[in-house]
């Protein structure tokens, strides 16, 4: 299974840089394998749905709370600077733009990286070290497709959905704060908020969700699926799944924002 890796390690002198490129190569192979296998039958619909449930539905409470608080806090913090110019009526559009363009995608992705990424890393990692993955393989089930494929599909579908949901909850939190201070009606708040948001913003936000979801899924699965060295390795897998996916999410954020701004 790891024959190719082993041979590679023989040929190359050890060293951090070489190791880094081997890792990049391995990740690329992992992703290629995902795309190759996911489109071939038998499809693991049942497992995909059960993963969507545990990744999406079970994060709803956390995403609601954080979205709500983000909305309130962001609004309350922005009010003084706008008030200086007598422009508190701009709050709904400011919040709309900030939430959809920046806050919702990032907050959702970072929370999911912490919650979902670590649990995928730990779960697959412990299945690996206790030979459950081998057991699946010898019983004629493709563990890559069953475990990895379903999880990556689920994160890629669920994170954009959670992002949209998080954005809506944040705007609702913001509305409550604005309503309490400026007596704005719900209708005019959301009209103002949405009038400032373009379709490009929404597409970009969904695209970010998809990219971040895929990143979280791949990182968690790759780290978990390649866990070595017993229970210690499981902890390491969970930990590095979170750290690496958070790091990648920020890099991707930067790139996507550049791209979107060049289109705008």
């Amino acid at each position: 299974m790891n024959q190719q890796t082993e041979n590679k390690k023989n040929l190359l002198p050890t060293g951090k840089i070489k190791q880094y490129f081997i890792e990049v190569y391995e990740v690329a192979r992992f992703i290629t394998r995902f795309f190759k296998e996911i489109f071939l039958p038998p499809y693991e619909f049942k497992e995909i749905i059960s993963q969507c449930y545990s990744i999406g539905y079970k994060s709803l409470a956390l995403i609601s709370v954080t979205g709500f608080i983000t909305g309130i806090v962001f609004t309350a913090q922005s009010r003084p600077s706008l008030a200086d110019f007598g422009a508190t009526s701009w709050l709904p559009s400011l919040v709309g733009i900030a939430v959809i363009r920046a806050l919702a995608p990032l907050i959702t992705a970072l929370i999911a990286a912490g919650k979902t990424g670590s649990s995928i890393g730990a779960e697959l990692g412990s299945m690996k070290v206790t030979e459950q993955i081998d057991a699946m393989e010898v019983s004629g089930t493709n563990p890559f497709k069953f475990l990895v494929g379903s999880r990556i599909v689920a994160t890629t579908l669920m994170i954009p959905a959670l992002t949209m949901y998080n954005g809506l909850v944040a705007m609702f939190g913001s509305y409550l704060n604005v309503h309490a201070n400026e007596m704005t009606s719900m209708k005019s708040f959301f009209q103002d908020a949405f009038s400032s948001i373009s379709f490009l913003d929404i597409y970009a936000s969904v695209a970010k969700g998809i990219v971040y979801g895929f990143t979280i899924g791949v990182t968690g699965c790759y780290k978990g699926y390649n866990t070595t060295q017993g229970t210690q390795g499981v902890g390491r897998a969970a930990n590095s799944a979170v750290v690496i996916s958070m790091f990648l999410i920020f890099i991707e954020e930067m790139i996507i924002v550049q791209i979107v701004n060049s289109i705008r």
């Binding site: 206790t130 459950q132 057991a135």
Partner: peptide, 17 residues
Amino acid sequence: VLRLKIGFSFQGSALYD
């Protein structure tokens, strides 16, 4: 197909927990 004819009892049992 071949693996269906092979039963593997793992050292740690490897039950799906």
